[in-house]
Design a protein around this nucleic acid. Structure first.
Lengths: 224, 224
DNA sequence: CATTCATATTATAATTTTATCATAATTTTG
DNA sequence: CAAAATTATGATAAAATTATAATATGAATG
């Protein structure tokens, strides 16, 4: 779970070494690439890169190109390094799905802090899986649920169901969809069983029970 | 579902207004607070703040304090605004769980871009199939409809009918066509039933109800 | 092996939606 | 303008769907 891999892409070996040293000290595993093409190759070879630090100016394929390419298949966090902080570039970056934007010269400490912050945020680090919405705190690892700070007891299925609802908050879910996700896809029982579970869940959630809305003729929806 | 609330906290009203204007233009709902204490109050009153923009220097309680306090109960994204980019501050910020760190003076465009980026990242945005026309926002994924920002309740058929109308805006639709699309093709009931649904739909749409025009001797047409 | 608990099933009650119909209002046409 | 055709409206009946409660099943536990 720890020992996350960070891919550092820069054509200057001095810069790669600098970043690598700091990240390694912080417990990350650093993989290097010296240009855009190599970056893509390395990224697709390893399927467990947790984050990419990408220099904009590079031979062969520049940072934007690499970013666009990767974004077409992956949501891996990307930090862009740029020489001068040009607003135009930065805006372009956000459109491309860059997560962070750091201009040179930067403090290595800041860089490491941002890397940690992003990984924490994207729940790649341990302990992560905690979801909160409207006073309901759901901890997937601990398999526990709190409502307004008070722990409530849910059965396995109830927990799964609530997780699914919260993960898909705001989305109208048909019974079929719910069955296929919360139950096994090969479950051929009665979809009415969902109703029963929803009822129990609503009951246990108390006043917050009506965050689970009924969508008539369609299914259910969880909403804050 | 859309219309995310952003809480802007700054003691300078000029700054709040600046940020508010830009965010509002981008479709966000902005709530203001002029100091740390007020920020906490507002945050706990509303349970659906999607993101907080926090100035560091403030009377009563400063940004760090507010951040720490909120982080003890919530994972809501926080963007910190600071006068000068001091590395020490920034590091402290990341430890406290700040998501983003922007130093003044900043470009409002960048600010908005970062807000969008964070919300996209934290999956607060729907992204899905949203249609908008003349103040009516129809979200197929959420199965919800808003009229001038206010949610209205539609039954299943009403929703289907409105979707069909909007998808075919500007097109004159015969009852037969409507029946075949919104109802099952094998429905052999009375076409007059459409009239009833149109009537109800118009009622629920309020003043915007007359976007559904009657085409005499032919059917209906939806028009902005 | 009995007990307990979670889950599934079933039946019934309650609710909501949808369709139908009669009548009123409106528009078109001659 | 009057008659005919069409649509709007409102009330009611029918149908569909969901909520609820009670019961059955089955797996886990001691």
């Amino acid at each position: 779970m720890e020992d996350l891999k960070v891919l550092v892409v820069d054509d200057e070996s001095r810069m790669r070494k600098l970043v690598k040293d700091f990240l390694t000290k912080d417990g990350y595993i650093v993989i290097e690439a010296s240009d855009g093409q190599e970056a893509l190759d390395v990224f697709y070879e390893n399927n467990d890169i947790a984050l990419i630090i990408l220099d904009v100016m590079m031979p062969r394929r520049d940072g934007w190109e690499v970013c666009r390419e990767i974004r077409s298949t992956s949501k891996v966090p990307i930090i862009m390094l740029t020489a001068k902080s040009e607003e135009r570039d930065e805006l372009l970056g956000f459109e491309l799905g860059v997560d962070e934007y750091i201009s040179k010269p930067f403090s290595p400490k800041i860089l490491v802090a941002r890397v940690s912050a992003i990984l924490r945020r994207t729940n790649q680090v341990t302990g992560g899986e905690i979801m909160e919405i409207g006073g309901i705190v759901l901890n997937k690892v601990a398999h526990s649920v709190q409502v307004d700070g008070k722990e409530i007891e849910l059965s396995y299925k109830e927990f799964e169901l609530l997780s699914f609802f919260i993960e898909n908050k705001g989305v109208a879910l048909s019974r079929e969809k719910i069955l296929n996700s919360v139950w096994n896809y090969d479950y051929f029982g009665d979809a009415r069983t969902i109703d029963t579970h929803v009822k129990k869940l609503r009951g246990k959630l108390g006043a917050k029970g009506d965050m689970i809305k009924t969508i008539w003729g369609m299914g259910y929806k969880f909403e804050a």
